[in-house]
């Protein structure tokens, strides 16, 4: 379903970018990075607006707002759709689906949401590794494998 999943740190530095593509050439990798990188603007803006909304409205709504980490569709291009998800610690999870592939074209919002939730769980597991330094790139092979699973299985 997804072609690319990225974990982006608090300071917008890439922590993990994994993708399933037809080829693993650098071009493909680069284009994925472009996609995710350009999504950051929209992501940040959305965070900023929800924040300001939170402050404006009463605490009740803010709590519900906080609970919803899923940001939905960030933007879409001719070929891809980019969804965002932000953890409470401002770790950004980005999921890119391909709108050209049959599986990705008519994906439902709920599917993306669950996929990102699972990704969040995986991320939490990965950084529970005592040898992992927060802020460093995630190099765990297990994480990589599981993320790839999410991307492939969840068709």
């Amino acid at each position: 379903m997804a072609v690319c999943v990225a974990v982006i740190g608090k300071d917008n530095s890439p922590l993990y970018i994994g993708g399933v593509g037809n080829d693993t050439s650098t071009d493909n990798e680069l284009s994925r990075q472009w996609l995710v990188h350009t999504a950051l603007d929209a992501l940040e803006e959305r965070l900023a607006t929800t924040n300001s909304n939170n402050t404006a409205t009463n605490t009740n709504t803010s709590r519900t707002d906080l609970r919803d980490l899923y940001l939905g569709l960030l933007y879409s291009t001719d070929t891809h759709k980019i969804y965002g998800y932000v953890t409470n610690t401002r770790i950004k999870l980005v999921l890119v689906t391909s709108s050209t592939s049959p599986s990705g074209s008519n994906i439902r919002d709920a599917e993306v949401r669950t996929a990102l939730r699972r990704l969040h769980a995986l991320y939490a597991d990965a950084i529970c590794n005592p040898f992992h330094l927060p802020g460093e790139q995630i190099t765990s092979q297990k994480f990589d494998k599981q993320v790839k699973n999410i991307m492939l299985n969840n068709v």
Binding site: W34, H37, T38, L40, D41, A42, E45
Partner: peptide, 13 residues
Amino acid sequence: LYKEIGFLRKAAF
């Protein structure tokens, strides 16, 4: 315009 709204990455793209 992207620059104007502060979407610098998008603008750069």
